[in-house]
C-alpha cells in the first residue's frame, strides 16, 4: 500500500495511472448524474412550502458541499507541498482551484436563483452568503497568485501558504447559519441525528452529491495530467510518450 502511494508520487507513473482511471470515474459520474437528475426533477415529490422551486437544491447543495470539499483537498495538498515538497500534491492543488471556483460560483448563483422566489431577494449580506463569496475570492486569489509566479514550484509553495491561511474561512461557512441570524436555512442533512428531510427528497440529493464528487475526481485527474505535461515537457519520459513520439 505504502509502495503504491510512493509510486503515485512520481509524475510519469501518475500521468499513466490518472489516464487509465479518469474515464471510469467519468462513466460512474454520468450514470449517477442521469439517475440523480431524473430522480430529483421527476420522481421526488413537490415541497409543501416551496413548491417546485426547491428542486434547485439538487444543484445548490451538492455544489456548496463540493466548494468546501475541494478547498479541504487543496489544504491537504498544501501541507504535503510545504512539508514534503510532493510534486503531485502541487499539481492536484493547482488542478483543483478552477473546479473549486466553479462549484463556489454555482452555489452562489443557484442560491441567488433560489433566494429570489423564496426570500424575495437575490442577495443578503448575511454570514453564509458573505463567507461563501469570500471563498470564491480565495479561489480566484489562489489561481491569480499561481499564474503570477513564473517558476511553478515556487508558485505552488506560495499558493500553499495562501490556501492554508484561507482554511479559517471553512468552519465559518459551515457554522455561519448557526452563529448568525440569517434568511438561509440551517443544516438539515449534516446535523447530528436523523436528517430532517423526506427520504424521497434525500436520495436524489445524495445521488447528485456523489455525481459531483466523481465529476471532480475525473476532471481533476484530467487537469492534473495536462499540468504534469506542461511542467515536465522537457524531460525524457515526456519525450518518449507514444502521444509525442508517434506510434
Amino acid at each position: 500500500m505504502m509502495k503504491f502511494f510512493h509510486k503515485l508520487g512520481s509524475p510519469p507513473y501518475f500521468y499513466g495511472f490518472a489516464g487509465r482511471l479518469a474515464p471510469w470515474l467519468g462513466i460512474i459520474c454520468l450514470i449517477l448524474l442521469v439517475i440523480g437528475l431524473y430522480d430529483g426533477l421527476v420522481v421526488a415529490p413537490t415541497d409543501y412550502q416551496q413548491g417546485e422551486s426547491y428542486r434547485i437544491i439538487y444543484i445548490h447543495v451538492p455544489a456548496a458541499w463540493m466548494s468546501l470539499f475541494i478547498y479541504m483537498v487543496m489544504a491537504v495538498c498544501a501541507v504535503l507541498t510545504m512539508i514534503w515538497r510532493v510534486k503531485i500534491a502541487e499539481v492536484i492543488a493547482t488542478a483543483s482551484a478552477p473546479l473549486g471556483a466553479s462549484f463556489t460560483f454555482l452555489a452562489l448563483v443557484t442560491g441567488s436563483l433560489w433566494g429570489k422566489p423564496m426570500w424575495g431577494t437575490w442577495w443578503v449580506w448575511d454570514g453564509r452568503l458573505t463567507s461563501e463569496l469570500i471563498l470564491l475570492f480565495l479561489y480566484l486569489g489562489i489561481i491569480a497568485l499561481y499564474n503570477a509566479v513564473e517558476d511553478k514550484r515556487t508558485a505552488a509553495r506560495s499558493t500553499a501558504v495562501l490556501t492554508l491561511v484561507g482554511v479559517v474561512n471553512i468552519p465559518i461557512i459551515h457554522y455561519s447559519v448557526i452563529w448568525w441570524n440569517t434568511l438561509h436555512q440551517g443544516p438539515t442533512v449534516t446535523k447530528l441525528g436523523a436528517p430532517s428531510i423526506d427520504p424521497r427528497m434525500l436520495i436524489p440529493l445524495l445521488l447528485m452529491a456523489m455525481a459531483f464528487q466523481f465529476y471532480y475526481f475525473a476532471v481533476v485527474l484530467m487537469q492534473a495530467r495536462a499540468e504534469i505535461l506542461e511542467r515536465e515537457r522537457n524531460t525524457a519520459w515526456v519525450q518518449q510518450l507514444p502521444e509525442v513520439n508517434g506510434p
Binding site: 413548491g51 460560483f105 422566489p117
Partner: peptide, 18 residues
Amino acid sequence: MGGYAFYVWTSYGIAMAV
C-alpha cells in the same frame, strides 16, 4: 415547474454549462 420554470431551469442550465 409550478411557475418557477425560470429559476429552476436557469439553475440547471448554468450548472450543466459549468
